[in-house]
């Protein structure tokens, strides 16, 4: 009997530890969410979405230009990064073999691990210096460099899961391999691929470091590719370190919006990922 109760005790202790560990994982997310909600919600207003920042000393204003800028940066980064990532993955699964494919996979993994500030420096030296100025283009390139390895590897994983019998079926009908890849393999993996893309977008939407010396940020509206452009994370950063109470409030509101965007993207990715897939 003694040994039995000891076993129960051990069981209880380990279970408790595991529950605590689970809570430790969940708690930070909950705390972040609640805190940002508390601080940001009161400052959130229609102005936030429609106004640009007011000059120092005036109250009010919003981050419309930052939202727009972030959207533009993400869109351009996607235009550059998605084709490279998705088509690269098609190459790896369907055409690649041997040393080159291994080299590509390895460099994608390393690229995914490179600190994002380094990515920003690369874009700085490649684009900002030769073009003699900060620009939205440089920011997009920096973001696309972060996007490519994520999209490449998730797409590759998804393509690998498409049954090979579909590829054979298409080839046996006299469909060239490249058409088979684009019209049979990729659509079959589409849901997983889109999930990966959403996660990649969620990742770059919050990136600040690579934008610091590429897109730079802008107090005003800017739509030009060759000029500095505002971005939500950059605006949060500069407003949060400014010595004005008003600006701090706006920064909190911006943080809340950013977190909501991330949350939505992740939720969307989960939802898509959960849908039934063809076997």
């Amino acid at each position: 009997m003694k040994s039995l109760s000891l076993r129960h005790l051990k069981n209880f202790a380990v279970t408790t530890l595991m529950v605590l560990a689970t809570l430790a994982v969940l708690a930070p997310l909950g705390l972040i969410f609640l805190h940002i909600l508390k601080m940001g919600f009161s400052s959130l207003s229609l102005d936030f979405f429609t106004q640009i920042p007011k000059p120092t000393g005036e109250s009010g204003g919003g981050m419309a230009n930052g939202l727009f800028g972030s959207g533009m940066l993400i869109m351009m980064a996607s235009v550059i990064g998605l084709p490279v990532g998705v088509l690269g993955a098609v190459y790896l699964t369907e055409f690649g073999g041997g040393k080159l494919a291994t080299a590509i996979r390895f460099s994608a993994d390393v690229l995914a691990g490179v600190p994002s500030i380094i990515t920003g420096m690369v874009a700085y030296s490649l684009l900002v210096v030769p073009m003699k100025g900060f620009s939205a283009l440089a920011g997009s390139v920096a973001l696309s460099l972060i996007m490519i390895p994520i999209v490449l590897r998730t797409t590759e994983e998804q393509l690998k899961m498409v049954p090979g019998t579909l590829r054979e079926a298409s080839l046996a009908l006299g469909v060239p391999l490249w058409r088979t890849c684009l019209k049979v393999m990729l659509p079959s993996a589409a849901k997983g691929v889109v999930t990966g893309i959403l996660l990649a977008i969620a990742r770059i939407a919050g990136e600040t470091a690579p934008l610091l010396f590429t897109a730079l940020g802008n107090q005003f509206w800017s739509r030009k590719l060759t000029e500095p452009i505002a971005a939500l994370p950059l605006q949060i950063f500069s407003f949060a370190i400014a010595p004005y109470e008003d600006w701090h409030k706006l920064a909190w509101a911006g943080a809340l919006v950013l977190v909501m965007i991330m949350f939505t993207l992740n939720l969307g990715a989960r939802f898509l990922g959960r849908q039934k897939r063809y076997s």
Binding site: T165, L166, V184
Partner: peptide, 10 residues
């Protein structure tokens, strides 16, 4: 024609 029926599922 293959061993296992393989119509395009989508």
């Amino acid at each position: 024609v293959f061993q296992k029926p393989n119509p395009f599922p989508a």
